[in-house]
Simulated scan of single mutants.
Amino acid sequence: MEFNGSQNISASRATVWQRLNDPRTLQECLPGCERYEQAEDGSYDAVIAASVGPIKARFKGSARFLDLREDTGYRIEGNGSGGIAGFGKLIADVHLEDIDGGTALHYTATAQLGGKLAQIGSRLVGAVANKFLADFFSRFEKLVSECEDAAAPQSMTIVIL
């Protein structure tokens, strides 16, 4: 399965980059994420509770960020297993670019599924994956743009009587 798209985020590229590399931000923005922490080898371990059609499972997996290009992008290689629900592997490329009013995040991803996940059909899995991405980007946009607004200098009016 392949996924690609873009998301405009109302924040500077430096802020978006910082937040994309912050484990607490990612845990907060990943739907169903129960745990997201850095492992000793530099990868990240995660536990995500998810439902795909009739299949409900807690997926345990890891992600490694490769080819880091400061404030520009990286490659994510990840895998996860939901026990009898099945397993998945993901390779995604993320690229950031400046746009008027913020940053565009572009992504392309390829996923492979096995087990029951593969049996329920790519159309349903694709719909769930697209919903997951939409929820992630909605949360990420909200969190990052709020932080950007809080960091912006506030104007002040002084009245002398």
Rank of each mutant, 00 (worst) to 15 (best):
E2Q: 15
E2C: 12
F3Y: 15
N4C: 10
G5L: 14
S6K: 15
Q7S: 14
N8A: 15
I9T: 02
I9N: 01
S10K: 13
S12T: 10
R13Y: 07
V16E: 04
W17C: 05
R19K: 15
R19G: 07
L20E: 13
L20S: 10
L20K: 09
D22P: 08
P23Y: 13
P23V: 08
R24H: 12
T25K: 06
L26D: 07
E28H: 13
C29W: 07
P31D: 04
G32N: 12
E34P: 04
E37C: 03
A39M: 14
D41W: 13
G42Q: 10
G42I: 13
S43A: 12
Y44I: 08
Y44C: 10
A46F: 15
V47H: 13
I48D: 05
A49R: 10
A49D: 05
S51H: 10
I55F: 06
K56R: 06
F59M: 04
K60H: 12
K60D: 04
G61C: 07
D67S: 11
L68T: 11
E70T: 07
T72K: 05
G73V: 04
I76K: 01
I76N: 01
G78R: 08
N79G: 09
G82M: 09
G83K: 01
I84M: 04
G86V: 06
F87N: 13
G88H: 01
A92C: 11
V94G: 02
V94P: 02
H95L: 06
L96A: 07
L96S: 04
E97V: 00
D98S: 09
I99W: 03
G101A: 01
G102Q: 02
T103W: 00
A104F: 01
Y107E: 03
T108M: 07
A109R: 00
A109G: 04
A109K: 05
T110G: 05
L117E: 00
I120M: 04
G121S: 00
R123G: 05
R123N: 02
L124M: 10
V125R: 03
V128F: 06
N130L: 10
F132H: 03
A134N: 13
D135C: 02
F136P: 00
R139V: 04
E141T: 13
K142T: 11
K142S: 11
L143E: 00
E146Q: 14
E146K: 12
E146A: 14
E148G: 03
Q154L: 14
S155E: 10
M156T: 11
M156I: 14
I158R: 14
I158L: 15
V159G: 10
I160N: 14
L161Q: 13
